[in-house]
């Protein structure tokens, strides 16, 4: 078999490499040729622009007055990091990230448990769970904005402890709740599918054995099921947390950052596209990138996320 090396043990692969070094060199070349287009394209649109953002962030540079470009060193970073607006937006973004991921994890897990047990109507459940996943985020944002709206929304009428004339978008925290509801609604199904795949890895025999030994439902959940799907949970949390930190679409549609509901992504967009502050905006881009990197690092280190499984390696 020509591809024995993919599954062979390291020792056997070593032996094979010595025996057919020409062939393995050819395979090496072919492999690099096949992956080259994808790697070049991915780096062209991310690594190069990111380096350019790093460069531009050292300038005072307004697109409306491009000739006045002037080198200011790290001044843009100092301006951003000493501004309470940046820290307020970081706070908003982190709050949204923590709360939405927590809700998605709990609700998504409950959904996964239900889907795992369902024997009939699987197609219907699967289809409906994919609709929020596939729907455009902007559409979800509109649907929930209208649902919470003062004139046309059904939410005030349906919730018994909320007055008919309560304006959800008139104050910071109600508006944040509306934004988070839209975010949670749209992304919980994705979380539940990832958790369902993890749930399928837990052996039924182990659960059955725990049951025979007299473990209650709660004990089986905490002592058997959850520890056995830790890897799947961590990967799902990592993906969703980084995605939630980039929240933009919902805020753009529902509040446009009004009532102090701005996120870091929205601030960056506003500086560049609305204010034409490319220098300052680039500094924000770099800081946003570093924040995501930091969160990824913390999650991987603190929770020991097994990234090999996230990459689909064995």
């Amino acid at each position: 078999m020509s591809t024995g090396a993919t599954t062979a043990t390291p020792a056997a692969a070593e032996k094979a490499r010595k025996g057919t070094s020409d062939r393995s060199r050819a395979e090496n070349r072919l492999g690099l040729k096949l992956v080259a287009p994808a790697v070049i394209l991915m780096l062209l649109v991310t690594a190069y622009p990111m380096l350019r953002a790093l460069y531009l962030s050292l300038f005072k540079y307004r697109l409306s007055a491009p000739d006045d470009r002037e080198f200011v060193g790290l001044n843009n970073y100092v301006t951003v990091l000493t501004d309470s607006l940046w820290w307020g937006d970081v706070f908003n973004t982190v709050v949204i990230m923590v709360i939405t991921v927590a809700f998605e994890l709990v609700i998504g897990f409950a959904f996964a448990m239900v889907m795992h047990r369902v024997v009939f109507a699987r197609g219907i459940i699967r289809t409906s769970i994919l609709i929020p996943y596939g729907i455009i985020t902007v559409v979800s944002a509109f649907a929930w904005q209208f649902a919470f709206s003062l004139n046309n929304g059904f939410v005030n009428g349906w919730l018994p402890f909320i007055g008919e004339d309560f304006n959800w978008f008139g104050d910071k925290w109600p508006a944040m709740i509306a934004i988070m509801v839209s975010e949670i609604w749209k992304t919980t199904p994705f979380m539940s599918l990832l958790l369902l795949a993890g749930l399928a890895q837990v052996s039924e025999d182990t659960i059955e054995a725990a049951k025979v030994d007299g473990a209650t439902w709660w004990q089986r959940l905490w002592k058997v099921i959850l520890p056995n799907m830790k890897a799947a949970i961590m990967v799902a949390v990592l993906f969703r947390a980084l995605d939630a930190f980039r929240i933009f679409d919902n805020i753009f549609v529902m509040t446009r950052g009004a009532q102090d509901t701005e996120s870091v992504s929205f601030l960056t967009y506003r500086q560049i596209i609305e204010q034409f502050e490319l220098g300052m905006g680039s500094a924000l881009s770099v800081l946003l990138f570093l924040s995501v990197l930091l969160i990824a690092y913390l999650l991987v280190k603190l929770f020991k996320v097994d990234l090999a499984s996230a990459r689909g390696e064995r």
């Binding site: 953002a53 980039r246 992504s265 560049i272 490319l278």
Partner: peptide, 11 residues
């Protein structure tokens, strides 16, 4: 995992 908004400016 890349934050897409950070590419908006340079792109």
């Amino acid at each position: 995992m890349f934050p897409v908004v950070s590419l908006v400016g340079p792109l």
